[in-house]
Design a protein around this nucleic acid. Structure first.
Lengths: 158, 158
DNA sequence: ATAGATGTTAGAGTATACTCGAAGTCAAGA
DNA sequence: TCTTGACTTCGAGTATACTCTAACATCTAT
């Protein structure tokens, strides 16, 4: 005899609300879920694997529509293995780009944290403008160069 | 005599559309921008610094409302340096968490890419289930453990 | 047998961030 | 002077991803 999980069980275990699970189903992400005679969703043990995959794709920034495409391939079995590989490989590339961008932002934010602390010590957000050029910290020069590029419309190459 | 940039100039230089710039203004992000007699926005050279800061906060995942809070502090000058430091420091933490999460996802996606390639070679998405336990790659065992935890509602500690 | 928890659907509502269209104003060159 | 292109506001529309409500069905425990 097979054990089934109700939508509430799945919600409690995965932290995805029952509302959201039904929304995902409506959007075609959960077509693999069985139904009882009366129409209730019956999640099986094996269903947690594709459900987990959905959460990974979501957290990787993939939109619902594209996840649906993936699930459509999933339902077709072995003949779509290659297509699914391609989708994951593309997503891998997207993740690398997202991480690189956030790391770039982190560098700027780190600088800003440092700069605000320096400015706070001196009680003046523009303190460096009153210093002789040779006493201005190189980090400030570098940041100002970035802002100048932004103003001049300089496009950064990859 | 002072040089001004029109909204179109700024759009062309920064890649932010004029529509979006007006939207940002309406949302209170661009209160520092001067206006001409006739109501046209006049961007100054110095305005590109806060505008750049806005783009950094945006790309860091900060919502418009919170960026507005930051700009409100910005307009108040030196007395808000500490508060602005705190906001950037919080954003720094948020960025570290976002990067950590994406790196976790990258690990899973890397695994999936590898697994789909193995499955494609064998023409069977569940090939490992037909292998004797000792021949199953440890990466597969590990991934299945993650899925089991997901099903059992195991919460990962930080 | 009945209450109460949990499930179902359809569809409306919310939040966020744009994105666009209409109607009108303004400034510079032919 | 007039045309043209860029600017203005206001408000509506779009896209994404939920999130919730209403009305009803069903399952479970006393």
């Amino acid at each position: 005899m097979k054990k089934y999980y109700t939508i509430g069980d799945v919600a409690a275990r995965t932290g995805i609300s029952a509302h959201t699970l039904r929304y995902y189903d409506k959007e075609g992400l959960l077509s693999f879920v069985e139904r009882s005679e009366s129409g209730k969703r019956l999640f099986k043990k094996e269903d947690f694997e594709p459900l987990y995959t959905i959460t990974v794709l979501k957290k990787s920034g993939m939109p619902i529509k594209k996840i649906r495409e993936f699930m459509t391939l999933y339902l077709q079995g072995n003949k779509t293995i290659h297509d699914r590989y391609v989708m994951f490989n593309d997503q891998r590339q997207s993740l690398l780009e997202q991480i690189a961008e956030l790391e770039d932002m982190l560098k700027i934010v780190d600088y800003k944290c440092w700069y605000f602390q320096e400015a706070e010590k001196r009680g003046d957000i523009n303190y460096y403008q009153k210093l002789p050029a040779e006493e201005v910290d190189p980090r400030i020069i570098e940041f100002n160069k970035i802002v100048d590029d932004f103003r001049e419309g300089v496009i950064k190459e990859d």
